[in-house]
Simulated assay, not measured.
Amino acid sequence: MIALPRSALILGLAGLVPFLWGAITVLSPDLALWTIRAIGPRFAGPYVMLFYGAIILAFMSGVLWGFATKLEGAQAGAGYVLSVIPALWAFFTTGGGPVSAGVSLMAGFAGLLGIDWLFWRYGVAPGWWMQLRVPLTAVVLACLAVGVFA
């Protein structure tokens, strides 16, 4: 097991805040109402998770693109193609309302984890990469599930 850099862990955990807040405001109507009044409806309930989730899938495409630059030949070509899938997935699948968008984002994050694993297996992601990505993805999927199924 390779040591996970503290800064990567802290930033990864901080990146969960919008997902956690969204799930909490789905489960707490009073907190959702306060959030809507205080900072706006985009920051409550499933909407914060959906908007932020699409942004994170696009961000992760950029991360994967960086990994793809370390590959060569046909593997590099496949890596570049794989790297753009999360952003395109978010763009094309999140416009149909909160439930279908939430389900689509859940599929996108699950698929992203598979692509993460592939780049890690190829040796172009850091050795600690999956130690970070698996728990973060689990929390994201749980939060999105609250938005979809609660």
Rank of each mutant, 00 (worst) to 15 (best):
V84Y: 03
L64R: 05
W117P: 12
V48S: 00
V124F: 09
A76V: 05
I115H: 01
A76K: 12
P126I: 15
L57P: 07
A110K: 03
V63F: 12
V48Q: 02
V103P: 07
G127Q: 07
S104F: 05
F109A: 04
L82A: 15
G114W: 01
G108S: 03
Q75C: 00
V63A: 11
A125T: 14
V81N: 00
A58M: 13
I85Y: 06
T94A: 02
L88K: 04
A87P: 00
S61H: 06
L57R: 00
A101T: 04
F51G: 14
L112H: 08
G53E: 08
F51A: 15
F119K: 03
A54D: 02
W89H: 03
A58E: 07
G97W: 03
R121Q: 09
A107P: 15
G102N: 12
W65R: 03
F59T: 08
W89M: 01
L132C: 08
L112K: 11
F109P: 00
M130A: 02
G53F: 14
L71S: 02
V48D: 01
L64I: 14
I115D: 05
W117E: 10
L113R: 02
S104A: 15
I55P: 15
G66C: 10
V84E: 07
G77K: 05
S100E: 13
P135I: 09
A78S: 11
A58R: 13
P86C: 05
L71C: 06
A74D: 04
A74C: 03
A107R: 06
L132G: 08
V81C: 05
L113E: 01
W129N: 14
T93R: 06
F91Y: 14
L71K: 05
F91K: 09
A125N: 11
A58F: 15
I115L: 04
V134S: 00
Q131V: 05
G114I: 07
R133C: 10
L105W: 04
A68W: 13
L82F: 04
A87L: 12
G114M: 11
K70L: 12
T93S: 09
W128T: 00
F59M: 03
A74T: 13
A58Q: 11
P86Y: 03
S104C: 09
A125D: 06
G123D: 13
A90P: 15
L113N: 01
L112F: 11
V103K: 05
G73H: 09
L105Q: 03
A68L: 12
A87D: 04
A125V: 15
G95A: 10
W65V: 15
G79P: 15
F59H: 10
V63I: 13
R121G: 01
L112I: 11
Y122S: 06
L88S: 01
L88Q: 02
V81Q: 01
I115W: 02
A125C: 12
G123W: 14
P135V: 11
A101L: 05
A78W: 13
G62V: 04
F51T: 15
F59W: 04
G127A: 05
K70C: 08
L118F: 07
Y52T: 15
L50H: 00
E72M: 08
L71V: 10
T94P: 00
K70N: 10
A90D: 08
